[in-house]
């Protein structure tokens, strides 16, 4: 039985490699070109043009297999996770066998770190190393975007027809009243990481969103006055360096029992809790620059 190959879907130019592969597999959409193969032995039974398993691929059977495998994998993964979570203690209960460190944090957290907000105390004092890794991840993300989107010159990019909203009257007049408050709120959330919910990541995200709004309401000239590529590079690298140096000093003095000149202060003051406030500022700056950098790199290919 012969199996007719399906009609090709309108390929005018195919790539050379594909032509070669087709020749090597000895079946070809182009019926005029002869396949390069030795003369086959005449079989008794009329052999099909293509084997049964290859015809399955062309008829789309592998797609059904993909769907079935995807559903099975999802069911297995979801059931594993649900069984794991149901074995854990209920939300809000005391679980002595799991929370040995948690009692230590809750009992002595404020007196050792000086932060009223225990979460900030944990992520920037007890687990400061992990937060440094997170900031590095943000930095790497922007670097990768910078590298990947700058391959061509960007000259032969078709620009989509788009309506430019930069000079819109309503937008600029309204944002004139709103953007200062967005920035103030972002700085407030950033500086109050150790006293109330907030911290570096939230404040940095709000600041980044504010800069994006400024650049889309007033154009790149206005936001380019204080965030350029040079500023971005200097700010992110110096923030990460400061984080490393400052936290290393605290690790060193704490591990060796020396006395560090960064005290804890009284809880509740704005200048307290050791290094948490400067580290929050560093992390927030990195996050804000990341958000704005990715936005600009995707909008045009330069910063």
């Amino acid at each position: 039985m012969t199996i007719n190959p399906t009609k090709p879907t309108g390929a005018v130019k195919t790539m050379k490699i594909r032509d070669n592969i087709k020749k090597w597999l000895a079946y070809d959409y182009d019926l005029d070109a002869a396949p390069v193969m030795p003369d086959p032995v005449e079989p008794d039974v009329e052999a099909p043009d293509i084997s049964f398993w290859r015809s399955l691929r062309r008829r789309g059977a592998h797609r059904a297999l993909y769907y079935v495998a995807a559903v099975i994998c999802s069911i297995i993964l979801a059931s594993t996770l649900i069984l794991t979570v149901s074995g854990m203690p209920r939300y809000g209960e005391d679980a002595e066998f799991m929370d040995t460190v948690t009692y230590e944090y809750l009992a002595h957290g404020m007196e050792y770190t000086g932060a009223v907000n225990i979460v900030s105390g944990i992520i920037l004092e007890y687990r400061a190393f992990d937060t440094l890794g997170e900031s590095f991840v943000l930095f790497c993300a922007v670097t990768c975007v910078l590298v990947l989107l700058r391959i061509d010159d960007g000259k032969d990019d078709v620009s989509l027809p788009c309506h430019d909203l930069t000079g819109d009257v309503i937008l600029s007049r309204t944002m004139r009243a709103l953007i200062p408050f967005i920035f103030i709120f972002g700085i407030y959330v950033l500086l109050n990481g150790h006293l109330s919910p907030g911290g570096g990541f939230s404040g940095g995200a709000v600041l980044g969103a504010g800069i994006i709004l400024l650049s889309s309401a007033y154009g790149e000239k206005t936001s380019g006055k204080f965030v350029t590529e040079r500023t971005f590079r200097i700010v992110t690298t110096s923030a990460l360096l400061f984080y490393c140096v400052g936290k290393s000093y605290t690790f060193y003095t704490g591990a060796n029992g020396l006395h560090s000149f960064i005290g804890n202060g009284t809880p509740g003051n704005i200048l307290s809790a050791g290094l948490i406030l400067p580290l929050n500022v560093a992390v927030g700056l990195v996050v804000a620059c990341t958000m704005y950098g990715i936005y600009r790199m995707f909008k045009e290919r330069r910063f």
């Binding site: 879907t9 309108g10 390929a11 130019k13 195919t14 062309r58 789309g60």
Partner: peptide, 14 residues
């Protein structure tokens, strides 16, 4: 626009 008419539909099954 660079390559002319698009449509290498050969591998679009996957």
């Amino acid at each position: 626009e660079k390559d002319g008419a698009d449509g290498d539909g050969n591998d679009d099954d996957d």
